[in-house]
Computed example of a mutant assay.
Amino acid sequence: MSTTITHELRHTVTAGWLLRLSGNKSPRRNHWQTKIIYFRAAAELLVTRPGAPLTWKSIVAAARPHGCRSTFYEVAGSHARHRMVDDLIADGRPDSVQLALRYLRTDPVEQLLDETKVWSYWPHRQQLLAYYAAHDLPPAAMATALTDTVATWGRQNEALAAAVSHTPPAGAVEDLTILHQGRLAAVRAAAQLSDVLRHSSGAR
């Protein structure tokens, strides 16, 4: 069972989205690298300017080596290219569509933060998958390890984790639904992991 689940985890929609974009090594028009510029800017602003409104203008101003309105809206907003939610919708399976609806935003900054969380969480997820591969765990133990990993990420990235009402990384939510093998809806999985992030930061 754990081998089958591990295979599913390595081929999630979120994983496919991230690996497809990050796998582009072309130095010209590398959309993933453009996204990372804005991911870093948003994450840094949350830390360095706590409580200050996060806007597209402040993110563009903080983007290095340079940001501009046009590239910001290439990576965030309803007309952005290669949105994570579009891959989830295109997948078409009920869990994927439900997850997409949970993360479908009208605010481009919130959409950027959702993707920033996935990018920031990804190294933790890779370590978790390596742990799964090294240990033959039942699904319940795998779910506990995932919850612990999300909590650790939240403690290490407190400002980002708290953004958008402690919304968890979409990749972690998708993974948790897989570990529960159809017995946990994406909306409930997201709510559970939001509670984990609130608890890890001491928020009420």
Rank of each mutant, 00 (worst) to 15 (best):
A130S: 14
Q181L: 09
A61R: 15
R29D: 14
A80G: 09
H82K: 02
G16N: 11
L176P: 03
A185T: 14
P138A: 09
G51Q: 09
Q33W: 01
R64T: 13
K57H: 12
R20E: 14
H11E: 09
A140P: 03
A162L: 04
D95S: 03
G171R: 11
L101T: 06
K25A: 12
M142Y: 08
A61C: 05
G202W: 09
S201E: 05
A100Y: 07
M84L: 15
V164G: 03
I89D: 01
W56M: 02
M142P: 09
P123R: 07
V150W: 13
L45C: 03
W153F: 15
P108A: 04
H180M: 06
P50K: 13
L113W: 07
H180I: 02
L88E: 05
Q156Y: 04
A100W: 02
P50D: 12
Q156W: 07
A151V: 13
P123V: 05
A185L: 10
V173L: 02
P50V: 13
T55C: 04
A130N: 11
R102T: 07
G67I: 07
P139G: 09
V173G: 03
A161S: 15
G51S: 12
R28Q: 11
A172S: 12
H66V: 10
S2C: 08
Q127I: 12
D148C: 11
T167P: 00
T4R: 08
N24S: 05
T116M: 00
